[in-house]
Structure formats: C-alpha cells, structure tokens
Amino acid sequence: MPKIIVEVMPKADLLDPQGKAVANSLNRKGHTEITAVRIGKRIELHYDETPTEAQLEEAKAFAADFLSNGVIEDVVAVTVEA
C-alpha cells in the first residue's frame, strides 16, 4: 500500500521523560553502554495510489502544524513509500 511516513521526534534539547525511563530500564537490564534513549512517533498516511508531489507537500505542511508541535517536537522526515 502506498504511504507517506511522517517521523516526529521530541526536540533534542528538551527532556524526554519517556525515553529517560526506558534508558534507565535498559541500563538496569545490563545494557550500560546505552547512554540515552529518545522516543518519537512514526505516523503512516495510507493512500490508494502513490502520493503525488503535491500530496507530499500537503503532508509536509500538516506534519509541521498538526501532526507535530514545533515547540516541543521536530518533524525529522516525511517520505513516500510506494
């Protein structure tokens, strides 16, 4: 199925409590070489046909102003998967 994949990550300089809790847990399990974990989101938009360039631009626009909040998150990738 053709998709547009939007990847959103919490901003690098902001605290990610979820990532911190997972990092602590991994460290406890013995993976002490892991220094940090950050958790983001992968959002898949499904289409019947391969998205057009215009649809990709649309997706980039709503990824920036709805699927993510620029104050706390960055959109790190918007990609088409045919």
Partner: peptide, 17 residues
C-alpha cells in the same frame, strides 16, 4: 489553548512520570 496557538509553549509529561 497552547495547541490552538492562543498561548505559546507546550505541555509535556510530568518530569517524574
């Protein structure tokens, strides 16, 4: 209100979870 951009900034999970 912050998601509507009527006020600036954002609210995230409490520091201690």
């Amino acid at each position: 209100l912050v998601e509507s951009h009527l006020l600036p900034g954002g609210l995230i999970r409490n520091e201690n979870q």
